[in-house]
């Protein structure tokens, strides 16, 4: 079996699946985009893959809260297969709307192990959608950010990205992987460096295994150096690619 198979799960209103699929192929995966509607009837199909991606977009328009309806579909149709998938040591990454979906379906951070929603992503403090580049500090044990420099830059583009939690703060610090930072690389609550008012400046989290991760910024939007927002620095390797490369390396070495 080809273990480098990745699956981009698309729902009504997803809109970042093509570029996500593109970069997966670029780093070596044999990637497929499959519609959630097709998976509902045969959920065990997801077990053919080693890496699942929940892409960005506005699934079901986010009309009843971002990611909520897809989370409901996952709970009713995909959860058993997903639990098996996770127990097999495989990888899941959720980007933006995909992160919202993972959080709301209880896949992340799953500190309790019960797959209940423990944290949330709610409307930005500005109550407005915003597209801008942010500086991020890299922390924690996610396999996706292994061997990263201590800071990276990526674009964010969302209306509901404010991270909030109900669980113990120490537990939250343990799951934090990316934090919004200021000019002096300190985690910040200052707008617009922290674009949404996220608690503890959190932009991305992983579960305790480090194999499941979600983030609000879009790594798939910084895969060519010309995509950098300024002309003053010549970035050698675009920061977004390494999330996907790390997934490939992990699967190659550990699975």
């Amino acid at each position: 079996m080809n273990k480098f198979k990745s699956l981009v799960i698309k729902a009504d209103g997803s809109n970042c699946e093509i570029e996500t699929d593109y970069i997966l192929r670029k780093v070596g995966f044999s990637s497929e985009i499959v519609h959630l509607n097709s998976l509902m009837s045969e959920p065990e199909r997801i077990l053919e893959y080693s890496f699942i991606l929940f892409p960005g977009g506005f699934s079901y328009g986010d009309y009843t809260g971002s990611g909520r309806i897809v989370a409901s579909i996952i709970k009713h149709h995909l959860m058993d297969s997903l639990k098996t998938f996770i127990s097999q040591g495989k990888l899941i990454l959720g980007i933006c709307n995909g992160f919202q979906t993972m959080v709301k379906s209880g896949i992340l951070p799953n500190v309790s192990g019960t797959f209940k929603q423990e944290v949330s992503l709610i409307f930005n403090d500005s109550h407005q959608y915003e597209d801008r580049w942010v500086k991020l500090q890299v922390l924690g044990n996610s396999i996706f950010t292994k061997n990263f420099d201590s800071t990276i830059e990526l674009p964010v583009a969302h209306g509901e990205g404010k991270f909030i939690y109900e669980i113990d703060q120490r537990l939250v610090e343990n799951i934090a992987v990316l934090k919004y930072i200021d000019e002096r690389n300190r985690p910040t609550m200052k707008y617009p460096l922290n674009p949404n008012g996220s608690m503890l400046s959190i932009a991305g989290i992983a579960d305790k295994s480090g194999r499941l991760m979600g983030l609000m910024p879009h790594p798939e939007r910084f895969i060519r150096k010309e995509q950098y927002y300024s002309n003053s620095k010549n970035e050698d390797e675009p920061h977004g690619i390494r999330f996907f490369e790390n997934a490939y390396i992990y699967i190659k070495e550990e699975l």
Binding site: I18, E19, D131, R221, Q227
Partner: peptide
């Protein structure tokens, strides 16, 4: 400008 997603599709 900030309210528009000007980077989706990564192009």
């Amino acid at each position: 400008i900030r309210q528009y997603d000007h980077e989706v599709q990564s192009q």
